[in-house]
Design a protein around this nucleic acid. Structure first.
Length: 117
DNA sequence: TCGCTGACCCAGG
DNA sequence: CCCTGGGCCAGCG
């Protein structure tokens, strides 16, 4: 797939690779993506990588949420967060009254845990 | 090269 | 549940 690779950052490439594998109707947390990308403990980097993602990348960036099951708020107050909820809802990912996704039910559980594809 | 600046996470209190 | 503190680190002036 056309996975964008800004500035030849190996870490970013690995992160995008993992995100591209999250199936429809499922979600993964930032920390989970980090671990699957071989970057355990660097959840923040996942957030930075997604933030740097250009529009129309084709990556299912909206399937990445935080460990509390919420869509992380953008500091710039942009529409990205709202869009993310809509996209997830269209995939039948449900939010409870508190705006949280039940991770025990919607979390992606990849059969293969290695970094490569 | 230095110094911000973040779509995070977890353990504590 | 809320708040604090510490760990994480690439990109761009």
């Amino acid at each position: 797939m056309n996975v964008p690779a800004p500035r030849g950052s190996d870490a970013y490439r690995r992160i995008y690779s993992v995100v591209s594998r999250i199936p429809r109707g499922r979600v993964a947390t930032y920390g989970q993506v980090a671990v699957l990308a071989g970057l355990a403990g660097r959840a923040r980097l996942v957030g930075y990588a997604l933030h740097a993602l250009p529009e129309g990348s084709g990556l299912p960036w909206h399937r990445v949420i935080n460990a509390r099951g919420e869509v992380s708020e953008r500091s710039d107050g942009g529409p990205a967060g709202r869009v993310q909820r809509i996209l997830l809802a269209q995939e039948r990912v449900r939010f409870d009254a508190a705006g949280r996704v039940a991770l025990e039910r919607f979390r992606w559980r990849p059969s293969r845990l290695s970094v490569d594809a």
